[in-house]
Amino acid sequence: MTGDPAGLPKLRLSHPSGGRAEVYLHGAHVTSWVPAGGSEALFLSRAATFAQGTAIRGGVPVIFPQFAALGPLPKHGVARTQPWERVDDGDRPGAVRLRLRDSAETHAVWPHAFVAELAVEVGDDWLSIELTIRNTGDAAFEFTAALHTYLRVGDVRRASIEGLHGLRYRAGKEERVDEDRSLIVNGEVDRVYLNTPPDLVVHDPQNARDFLLRARGFADTVVWNPWAAATAALPDMEDDEYLEMICVEAAQVGAPVRLDAGASWTGSQRIRVQPA
């Protein structure tokens, strides 16, 4: 385990092939993933803030128990700004399991007993992230969640996403159907695609690579890029960085998960990089 200048502990994962990743205990936040023989696959803002109580801009934030501002809680819930603990024995250098338990701080905004676990594993050309939520209280609760994955692309104006054609999506208060054969981002996009297929492809021609995304347990997919005007209003993102990223997030937003006392839920996303 290492640390950064802000004093936040960080774990380095490595695979014998050369694939590697970095994970902060702060928010159980994956901030870097480099496939074997390749280049950085996750976007992390050069202006990202690393501090207690603050979300990190980029990587893979863990969203729980509320997605965005769709409810009474702070935006994107509490998990991404809480300190998590390592619970595996450290015998696998390419994998880690982290845990977050409810606390007085989480009860202040969400009065439920829970345990969240995040399992992260890196391989030669793939990254796997699995989120499990257990209800440890005596009453049912509901939540929404996401793995808010920021993919790094060479130029988002040249990138495209396949697998969303014909699907319903929400954009603000409107609901529409995607009629494009592939999604090309040429302006601000903030969509929640409902009941999406498990497999999607993101083409990154500038870097001559494709991202193959496979989700399990999550019913929906969020696609987000703030574009120029919204990026300029973000204090933790430089003005031109929207060109370097696209968020394609495994999510459970359209229908909240209801967990009875003692029950658990698991959702995962596995990303593979291959030459275009």
Rank of each mutant, 00 (worst) to 15 (best):
Thr2Pro: 00
Gly7Tyr: 06
Ser17Leu: 07
Arg20Pro: 05
Ala21Leu: 06
Glu22Met: 08
Glu22His: 04
Val23Thr: 09
Leu25Asp: 08
Thr31Gly: 10
Ser32Phe: 02
Val34Gly: 10
Ala41Lys: 02
Leu44Val: 10
Arg46Thr: 11
Ala47Trp: 10
Thr49Ala: 11
Gly53Lys: 06
Gly58His: 04
Gly59Cys: 13
Pro61Ser: 03
Pro61Val: 13
Val62Glu: 09
Phe64Arg: 02
Ala69Cys: 13
Leu70Trp: 14
Leu73Ile: 15
Lys75Gln: 15
His76Ile: 06
Thr81Asp: 01
Asp88Pro: 12
Asp89Phe: 02
Arg101Ser: 15
Ser103Cys: 01
Ala104Asn: 05
His107Asn: 05
Val109Lys: 03
His112Leu: 02
Phe114Trp: 10
Asp124Tyr: 00
Asp125Leu: 12
Ser128Val: 03
Ile129Thr: 13
Thr132Tyr: 06
Arg134Gln: 13
Arg134Glu: 15
Ala140Arg: 11
Phe143Cys: 04
Thr144Trp: 07
Leu147His: 13
Leu147Cys: 10
Leu151Val: 04
Gly154Arg: 02
Asp155Ala: 14
Asp155Lys: 04
Val156Cys: 00
Arg158Ile: 00
His165Thr: 13
Ala171Thr: 12
Glu179Ala: 11
Glu188Tyr: 08
Arg191Thr: 03
Leu200Pro: 03
Leu200Phe: 07
Phe211Glu: 13
Arg214Pro: 03
Arg216Ser: 14
Gly217Cys: 08
Val222Ile: 15
Ala229His: 15
Ala229Asn: 07
Ala232His: 10
Leu243Ala: 15
Met245Lys: 01
Val248Gly: 06
Ala250Leu: 07
Ala251Asn: 05
Gly254His: 08
Val257Arg: 06
Val257Gln: 03
Leu259Met: 05
Ser264Ile: 02
Gln269Val: 15
Arg270Ala: 12
